[in-house]
Design a protein around this nucleic acid. Structure first.
Lengths: 197, 197
DNA sequence: AACGATACGGAACACGGTTCCGCTTTGGCA
DNA sequence: TGCCAAAGCGGAACCGTGTTCCGTATCGTT
């Protein structure tokens, strides 16, 4: 689907020096602008910040979603890798799951507007959603399975649904002082325990 | 804030006959288009369906959000009124709360894209969100209070947060066969019971 | 130094909400 | 009934998005 950009592969080699430099510049500019103005900052703003034309962005990242993926890829990967690690700490599986979800929530709510973009209507950002879910759902499933085996949660919880649910709960967590996504996520995780008290 | 349109008041009187007829036509057209293409259908589509110019829409409804409010106002009101009624049926407060939330969820998930528009970032649709919350948060608070008094749920749950959380969980419930908002809402409501099992 | 391949800039396009204004319709009044 | 100001209407035009296109500039190889 893609040629040689950071978004989907790592073949950063064999390209003109200026191209590689621009890609680097773009990622930095995008990261900066995302922090300042949120993930929905106009492409033109990012181009301006990087001092390049919009065409350059689209040559490196076929769509805005790919740029967002590239910017957050490392952090998503780190989150994914934290799952097994937590399980190995000796915490109870349910506690490990809780902490892992906290990690995910922290990541989402500190990225202005990121959660909103992960929602499953909105057909742009398909690639972004796919990347997040491909990476994180298996980890979640593993944690869920461990907790289920330990009898700490009700069985039959679908990791995909849970990730989507948690992601949804984080939407607008910034930008609305009266809404604290962590409270709701905590309730949701608490609800994982048996069907009734 | 507003003059004499359905969105915020009821003074439908003292306007030209054609204006009232057009408003009626518009509401019907909008409702039809919303069902067919979702709440995010372009204003031009609605205008076309109604056989009027876009200017006419904006004269009757200052913004798209006001049109959406007008279309769903009755159903929101009905939902609000169902709360006290459920409480009076003799069900346990927690059960009543559960059923009321179900009503709300049913309403949201059957309106293609409505939930997505209620999310609290997205500064358009401020009016829409305000209407929903003004109407439903007090009802939710009442049900929550009753359940708390009965000792069925943990205390200190904020009705506003809960409504926002439930609304968020419903985002994209249509348009994604793998995600069933009802499951997640059920977990959330289950989580309302004591802090630990 | 020259030249083909690669990359760049940014104008132009598609598409959404919203505004504006010249024209039409209505309805009270002579 | 006929007139005409006010009320309403239609839709072109405008603004802000993401995305595409293509003439021009740069690179790096010969």
């Amino acid at each position: 689907m893609n040629d040689g950009n950071e978004a989907t592969g790592q073949a950063v080699v064999s390209r003109r020096k200026d191209a590689r430099r621009n890609q680097e510049t773009l990622l930095n500019a995008a990261a900066t602008v995302f922090v300042a103005s949120g993930v929905n900052a106009p492409v033109r703003d990012i181009a301006a910040k990087a001092g390049v034309g919009v065409g350059t962005i689209y040559r490196h990242f076929p769509t805005r979603a790919d740029l967002v993926i590239a910017v957050y890829r490392h952090q998503v990967d780190a989150c994914a890798e934290a799952g097994p690690a937590l399980l190995a700490t000796g915490l109870s599986p349910h506690a490990a799951l809780g902490q892992w979800i906290d990690l995910f929530v922290d990541f989402l709510v500190t990225k202005h507007g990121l959660a909103a973009v992960l929602r499953s209507d909105n057909s742009d950002f398909e690639a972004l959603r796919a990347y997040f879910l491909d990476r994180l759902v298996p980890v979640c499933a593993e944690l869920l399975e461990a907790a289920a085996v330990a009898g700490e949660i009700r069985p039959g919880i679908d990791a995909y649904e849970l990730m989507r649910g948690v992601g949804n709960l984080c939407i607008g967590a910034d930008s609305d002082p009266r809404y604290d996504a962590r409270h709701m996520v905590e309730l949701l995780i608490a609800g994982l325990r048996g069907p009734h008290r």
